[in-house]
Design a protein around this nucleic acid. Structure first.
Length: 199
DNA sequence: TGAATGATGCGCT
DNA sequence: GCGCATCATTCAT
């Protein structure tokens, strides 16, 4: 895929760092998916962090299961799960093998491949295309088939963006839609972005 | 413009 | 059974 040559793919070592560092650093990174229908390029504008230790809201908090085992593997893979009977959510697996931690992608800013995303989410305004974790997977066509995919592959990966955000441009608040560990400020999003799920 | 609600299936107690 | 890292729609202000 020659198109990708201009993008600097993030290496395994970028993912195998402490959870909150990766979560914060992920804001502003490019998320690139070479789908069977064509290339989609987006920018990460909102995420949440989840960790097996000290975080009861994390799927891995009670140990490894057939659903969450990908989180226990090496960093730099995709963890996709099915929720509420009809939606998928996708996470970036973080930290070393044996430590279950992940960054939930909550919102993306579409950059290219808009026709494809619109096709996946008919009759939606552009701002409604990818502003929520379920919408992100629906818009990109991510399903459980993508669970465990290697993010250092050519199919799907993160890349450095031209404009790097400063710490001031990244807001940290409490997570959305959970009933446990509500007080942890583990949600990160780009300040002033119109593409986030909830400002 | 915000609150309430139904859809819908899987994993865990 | 119950709860769930959600979303779109409906209904009330």
């Amino acid at each position: 895929m020659e198109k990708n040559i201009k993008y600097k793919k993030l290496p395994r070592s970028w993912y195998e760092r402490p959870l909150l560092e990766v979560a914060r650093d992920s804001i502003g990174k490019l998320f690139i998916y070479n789908s069977p229908q064509g290339q989609i390029i987006t920018k990460i504008v909102e995420v949440e962090a989840y960790h097996m230790i000290g975080d009861p809201a994390c799927h891995a908090h009670r140990g490894k299961t057939s659903r969450n085992y990908v989180m226990f593997g090496e960093g730099g893979h995709l963890y996709v799960y099915f929720i509420y009977g009809m939606y998928y959510c996708m996470n970036i697996v973080v930290e070393k093998e044996g430590v279950a931690a992940a960054v939930l992608i909550r919102a993306l800013e579409p950059i290219s491949g808009l026709e494809l995303i619109r096709k996946n989410r008919p009759n939606k305004k552009d701002r409604e295309l990818l502003n929520g974790p379920g919408k992100v997977c629906s818009g990109l066509g991510i399903t459980k088939k993508h669970n465990g995919l290697d993010l250092t592959s050519e199919i799907i990966f993160l890349a450095e963006s031209k404009n790097i955000l400063t710490n001031q441009e990244i807001i940290s608040t409490t997570r959305i839609g959970i009933s446990q560990a509500k007080d942890l400020p583990w949600r990160f999003y780009e300040k002033n972005s119109i593409w986030v799920s909830k400002p």
